[in-house]
Amino acid sequence: MRWVTFDCFGTLVDWRHGIATAIDLILPGQGERLLGAYGRHELDVQTESPSLRYREVLAESLRRACAETGTALRPDDASVLAATLPYWPVFPEVRDELATLRAAGWRLALLTNCDRDLIAETRRRLETPFDAVVTAEDAGAYKPDDAHFRVFRESFEPERWVHVAQSYTHDMVPAHRLGIRRVWINRLAERPADPAVTQTELPDLRGLADTVAA
């Protein structure tokens, strides 16, 4: 069976826009300023507490970002990211490309650093059905740990498997380590620390069906 697995947030859903906009709801005008600080803390929180629910990872990362920048955060506002996550926007080309992959006979799966309930809300916005989902709850860890990939491999034994993701650290590195074919969706025009890790690169999902077929 042919599988394409995806990271969700950052790859299919505009994670940066979602976080910045959510922060603006509680701290008007601060979303873009706090976005960078948030990104610096999330990986640390996930590494320190791999069993923590993702909604708590979101809240704790926001608390640390505010503390780092000297921004006052009301205690009950720390939940804003989890509350708005189901409404974060899907990148404009994603729905068509997912439908094209499915029509070409690929099975689709999500390997996501998210809770089951939160990803269930996001899946309805992607519109194309997914055949499998592996969450951080299922894996018992957060990427870049190998657990998501091992759970998927053991559960579905894919004959052909391509992993598609935006994060070099969370997805490309472990997929490379495990010998999984991969496509880096380099939406931020980053320079990889090691080009061999990313294997194949696209600026977004347009043309992905042709790329994975090749």
Results as ranks from 00 to 15, higher is better:
residue 3 W to D: 08
residue 4 V to D: 05
residue 4 V to S: 02
residue 4 V to A: 05
residue 6 F to E: 08
residue 7 D to N: 01
residue 7 D to Q: 01
residue 8 C to S: 08
residue 9 F to H: 11
residue 11 T to P: 09
residue 12 L to E: 03
residue 12 L to P: 01
residue 14 D to F: 07
residue 17 H to I: 11
residue 19 I to S: 07
residue 22 A to D: 03
residue 22 A to G: 06
residue 27 L to M: 08
residue 38 Y to F: 15
residue 43 L to S: 14
residue 49 S to H: 15
residue 51 S to N: 10
residue 52 L to E: 08
residue 53 R to W: 13
residue 54 Y to V: 11
residue 60 E to W: 11
residue 62 L to F: 12
residue 62 L to S: 10
residue 65 A to M: 13
residue 66 C to G: 06
residue 67 A to V: 09
residue 68 E to D: 15
residue 68 E to C: 07
residue 69 T to C: 15
residue 75 P to I: 02
residue 76 D to H: 11
residue 77 D to V: 03
residue 79 S to I: 11
residue 81 L to Q: 01
residue 82 A to P: 03
residue 89 P to K: 01
residue 89 P to N: 02
residue 91 F to P: 02
residue 94 V to C: 09
residue 95 R to C: 12
residue 95 R to N: 11
residue 97 E to D: 06
residue 99 A to G: 12
residue 101 L to S: 03
residue 102 R to T: 13
residue 108 L to W: 07
residue 113 N to S: 12
residue 115 D to C: 08
residue 116 R to H: 15
residue 116 R to K: 13
residue 118 L to S: 09
residue 120 A to G: 14
residue 120 A to S: 14
residue 121 E to P: 00
residue 124 R to L: 10
residue 124 R to A: 12
residue 126 L to Q: 05
residue 127 E to D: 07
residue 130 F to S: 03
residue 132 A to V: 05
residue 135 T to Y: 10
residue 135 T to W: 11
residue 135 T to H: 08
residue 138 D to Q: 07
residue 139 A to L: 06
residue 141 A to H: 10
residue 142 Y to M: 07
residue 143 K to S: 09
residue 143 K to Y: 12
residue 147 A to Y: 02
residue 154 E to D: 15
residue 155 S to Y: 04
residue 156 F to M: 05
residue 159 E to N: 07
residue 164 V to M: 04
residue 164 V to G: 02
residue 165 A to C: 05
residue 166 Q to V: 03
residue 170 H to V: 06
residue 172 M to T: 02
residue 173 V to I: 14
residue 176 H to P: 02
residue 178 L to Q: 12
residue 178 L to Y: 08
residue 181 R to D: 14
residue 182 R to D: 00
residue 186 N to S: 04
residue 187 R to G: 11
residue 192 P to E: 00
residue 192 P to F: 00
residue 193 A to G: 13
residue 200 T to L: 15
residue 200 T to P: 00
residue 203 P to I: 06
residue 203 P to G: 06
residue 206 R to W: 07
residue 206 R to F: 07
residue 214 A to W: 07
